[in-house]
């Protein structure tokens, strides 16, 4: 008899357990799992060049159940300012951040100190020393080479003595350094002469004008979107200039002036992919703890007037609906 009541008790306990489990399950279904909060910190966040990137981020956030927060930023003055924002974002409850470091030279360890314990993805550029973090970016050396490739293709056989001025962007970023060296390596031995190289500093248009006055270059090379827009502005202002422009960019302005014929060749990284992939990577990190640092490469398109309206380029180049 005693044995029976023990069995009975055990059975009731099991039933109760199952009931509790089912109740719990019932209350929990429909409720989404915890939503992670990810902040994105990029230089000058409202700039047009981030449109595709934002789109990618949004899609990635929706697909990975992440609450996305693109931090409103203006032009960063330096790494310390950026770090301050990163710190604040973590304090405000961000689970992870996606950062475009405004400088790769993190000598004081500001950046690595800020993010050592956290889920973090770098986009656009790595920081020194390389390979410590997951970075989503294009192969910058290849971008540089591709710009040079476009130039060389257009000027085939006429490269001797061609003068080139380079707007090399933010040379504190590894990415820009690589693009520059990619370009320089590619034009080496072709007779192309680099007459000046301007890094991002001071009043750019005026600087550009003075450079051009001193050492007129036939071709302007821009290694980055903002530089491309700047060169376009310069060319618009200097109506008589016969300069041609090759560069990198993804904003609608850059595309427009490519379409207009002012830019001869444009390298467009698939920033949508960059945004989406960085979101995916950070979701992975948040879900499974830290994943090994790796470079995720983003493809880029080489666009000129001929293939601008190709079906494939259209799909990447133009934001579908705004």
């Amino acid at each position: 008899m005693k044995k029976n009541s023990i069995y009975f008790g055990v059975l009731v306990a099991v039933m109760l357990g199952v009931t509790a489990f089912a109740t719990y399950g019932m209350l929990n279904t429909g409720r989404e799992g915890e939503e992670y909060q990810v902040s994105v910190i990029v230089n000058n966040s409202s700039s047009d060049r981030w449109i595709a990137f934002r789109e990618g981020l949004k899609q990635g956030a929706a697909d990975n159940h992440i609450q996305l927060n693109i931090v409103s930023t203006v032009e960063f003055t330096g790494l310390s300012e950026e770090c301050q924002i990163i710190r604040r974002e973590f304090e405000n409850g961000a689970d992870g951040v996606i950062i475009e470091p405004c400088s790769s030279e993190d000598e004081e360890g500001l950046l690595s100190g800020e993010v050592s314990e956290e889920a973090v993805i770098f986009v656009g550029t790595d920081v020194m020393p390389e390979g410590l973090h997951t970075v989503v970016m294009t192969d910058h050396y290849e971008v540089g080479s591709a710009i040079a490739g476009e130039l060389l293709e257009d000027y085939e056989g006429r490269t001797d003595g061609l003068t080139v001025g380079i707007l090399s962007g933010n040379q504190e970023q590894l990415s820009m350094q690589k693009r520059l060296s990619g370009f320089l390596d590619a034009v080496e031995g072709t007779g192309i002469e680099v007459v000046w190289t301007a890094a991002e500093e001071g009043d750019r248009i005026e600087e550009l004008k003075s450079f051009q006055k001193e050492h007129p270059a036939d071709v302007l090379i821009t290694l980055e979107n903002d530089e491309t827009e700047l060169a376009v502005d310069y060319l618009l202002a200097e109506e008589k200039s016969s300069c041609v422009l090759y560069g990198e960019g993804c904003s609608e302005k850059a595309v427009y002036y490519l379409d207009k014929g002012m830019i001869q060749g444009l390298i467009v990284p698939n920033e949508f992919h960059m945004g989406y992939l960085s979101m995916q990577e950070i979701a992975k990190q948040l879900l499974y703890g830290t994943s090994p640092a790796q470079n995720r490469e983003i493809e880029f398109l080489t666009i000129n007037k001929e293939n601008l309206y190709d079906v494939e380029s259209q799909k990447i180049l133009f934001p579908i609906v705004q």
Partner: peptide, 19 residues
């Protein structure tokens, strides 16, 4: 956006603008 960034700096309260 610009004023939002300034406000953020002044007050230390993160101002997120979603447009």
């Amino acid at each position: 956006d610009r004023y939002a960034a300034i406000k953020e700096e002044e007050t230390g309260v993160a101002v997120n603008v979603e447009v």
